[in-house]
């Protein structure tokens, strides 16, 4: 009896929670994009990532929440902070002038006719309203592809539906997406060497922290990879936690030995896509379709591909954080 009478209150609480979260998201995004100071904008953006992960939790998408927590809030934030630091160090003599310039641009813009401002706002309101209207008229109960995904789960080799979609049904997308990650690194490396080497040494606290944290991160990466077969987790989540371990190593001043910087590093970076493509092609030669795994050992194969992908994703993300080709050292 009691449970039933509490149900409306529960729904109300949920609604209040969602509304508050929704407004907080919009407000954070707005403040992050409008704040006059870049550092503040980035901190707000990191907070925005945290709340996004909460939204994924509320929408019953734990796999996405994991990815967002690791990549959206974690690694992207670290990347932004590092870039900002480099931007500010690089031309610190100019920075005062720069700031004046920025302020001048802002004041000029605010002097610029309010009419155009209102016109722009109106335009954006119309666009937003149009989109909201379009969304509201969507048919309510399209279950999408949930049914076929679940029906074929048996022969996919894993029991977590999201992993089944990522690595089996739509494995081709994932293959191309791993290529995008590798390509981004290639692009960054083609720009040249590491922008600015840091010479400061980590203090005792940081040293201790990293010694404790890095093994833990690597262990969690392995756990996420393993658990992905039947629960939220998988190669991307594991890979980005591994990447975070790499970032931490780089932050405390560790660098890869010059012996490993050449071909061994490149092989590790290519490993994920390489294994994926080879697995696909081998099955063509065996008379099956590209990336068509036999159900009997699909599970093992997916774990193998995911393990390779986790390693490559982790190393690639850490290398992206470094921001340039490691073998190339620029002198001051």
């Amino acid at each position: 009896m009691e449970a039933i009478s509490l149900l409306p209150l529960m729904t109300l609480l949920q609604l209040v929670f969602d509304t508050l979260l929704g407004f907080a998201l919009l407000w954070l995004a707005w403040r992050a994009l409008a704040s006059p100071e870049l550092f503040q904008a980035i901190v707000l953006f990191i907070a925005f990532g945290l709340l996004m992960a909460l939204a994924w939790v509320r929408l019953d998408a734990p796999d996405v929440a994991l990815a967002e927590a690791a990549i959206g809030a974690g690694l992207t934030g670290a990347l932004l902070l590092a870039t900002l630091a480099r931007l500010e160090v690089k031309n610190r003599a100019k920075s005062e002038l720069e700031k004046k310039h920025e302020v001048r641009v802002i004041t000029e813009k605010s002097k610029h006719q309010t009419f155009f401002f209102l016109l722009r706002m109106l335009l954006f309101m119309v666009v937003a309203t149009g989109l909201v209207y379009a969304v509201l008229t969507l048919p309510e109960n399209t279950s999408g592809l949930a049914m076929p995904v679940l029906e074929n789960l048996e022969s996919s080799g894993v029991s977590n539906p999201v992993t089944a979609v990522l690595l089996n049904y739509r494995g081709y997308d994932t293959l191309l997406e791993l290529s995008v990650l590798l390509l981004a690194l290639l692009g960054v490396w083609s720009f040249g060497g590491i922008p600015k080497p840091y010479r400061s040494f980590p203090g005792p606290v940081l040293n201790m922290l990293s010694r404790l944290l890095i093994p833990l991160l690597i262990m969690v990466a392995g756990y996420l990879l393993w658990v992905g077969a039947h629960a939220p987790g998988g190669a991307f989540q594991g890979g980005s936690v591994l990447g975070a371990a790499g970032v931490l190593l780089l932050l405390v001043g560790w660098r890869l030995g010059t012996r490993f910087v050449g071909l061994p590093l490149r092989i590790t970076l290519v490993f994920g896509v390489g294994i994926f493509v080879s697995a696909g092609v081998v099955f063509i030669l065996l008379g099956r379709q590209f990336l068509e795994y036999p159900p009997s050992f699909a599970g093992v194969l997916i774990l193998l591909i995911e393990a390779a992908a986790t390693l490559s994703i982790g190393i690639t993300l850490a290398a992206l954080f470094l921001g340039g080709r490691p073998e190339f050292r620029r002198h001051k």
Partner: peptide, 13 residues
């Protein structure tokens, strides 16, 4: 038409 992974259109690519 070629079904990657052998799944076919709505589920696969």
């Amino acid at each position: 038409r070629y079904a990657i992974g052998g799944w076919g259109a709505p589920l696969g690519i």
